[in-house]
Computed example of a mutant assay.
Amino acid sequence: MHEMAIAEGILGIALKTMDENAATRVARVNLLVGEMAGVECESLRFCFAALTKGTAADGAALSIERVPLIGRCGACGREQPIERYSFLCPSCRSGALEIISGRELKVESLEVD
């Protein structure tokens, strides 16, 4: 379950940021998780809640924004959603798609007290 390792990394970032800003508690962690990141969001929530027990992030909300998989065609230049992992441009059928979003796994922001 790699979600546990991800949750550990998120908690580490949150606690370090809290310390750097002389805060006493982490209230919320806002994440961006790309469609292609391979993260099970409910599993990540469960792991994060388990890891934060007894820490300064105990009870912190974990807000997850899913980022769609979007590609830009190198041939026709159109930006479009990539559906069912079909990496051919839906407009011109070129295979020259560049992924421009959907692989993110990022702590976007934190709320601390």
Rank of each mutant, 00 (worst) to 15 (best):
K106C: 14
D58R: 02
F48K: 06
R45G: 04
Q80I: 12
R45F: 04
E42C: 05
E3N: 10
V29W: 06
D58H: 10
L44E: 05
T52R: 07
C76V: 10
C41G: 09
E111Q: 15
L88I: 11
A60F: 01
G102F: 10
V26Q: 01
G74C: 07
G9P: 08
V26D: 00
L110E: 01
M1D: 10
E8P: 03
T17Q: 00
S43A: 13
C89S: 04
L105Q: 06
C73W: 03
L105N: 02
R45W: 04
G38T: 12
A37N: 11
L110H: 01
K16D: 05
P68C: 08
I82G: 08
F46S: 07
E35W: 12
E111R: 05
M4V: 14
L32N: 11
C89Q: 04
A50I: 04
K53N: 11
A56G: 09
A7V: 02
D58S: 11
E8A: 09
V29A: 05
S94K: 06
E111S: 07
R84V: 10
G74P: 05
G9A: 05
R78V: 15
T17K: 01
I10G: 01
E104Y: 06
F87M: 05
K106L: 15
A27I: 09
R93I: 05
F87E: 08
T17W: 00
R93N: 13
R28M: 03
N21G: 00
L11S: 00
A49E: 14
C76Y: 12
V39N: 11
A23G: 15
A7E: 04
K106S: 08
R84N: 15
S63Y: 10
I100M: 11
I82D: 06
F48V: 05
G59N: 07
L44N: 05
F46M: 09
G38S: 13
K16C: 00
H2D: 09
E40C: 12
G12F: 02
R93W: 07
M18C: 12
L69Y: 09
I100R: 13
L15Y: 03
I82M: 03
A14S: 02
E3L: 08
R45I: 06
V107S: 05
G9L: 03
A27R: 10
C92H: 04
F46W: 07
K16G: 01
A22K: 01
G38F: 13
M36I: 07
A56R: 02
R72F: 07
M36Q: 13
K53R: 15
Q80V: 14
H2N: 09
M1F: 10
Q80P: 04
R84H: 15
I64C: 03
G54Y: 06
Q80M: 15
S86K: 11
E20Y: 03
A50P: 06
S86R: 15
M36Y: 14
T55C: 04
V112N: 00
T55Y: 01
P90Q: 03
C73Y: 09
E3P: 01
D19L: 09
G77H: 08
V33M: 03
R25T: 01
A37Q: 12
Y85S: 12
L105K: 04
C73E: 03
A60T: 01
L97T: 04
L15S: 02
G54W: 03
E65I: 11
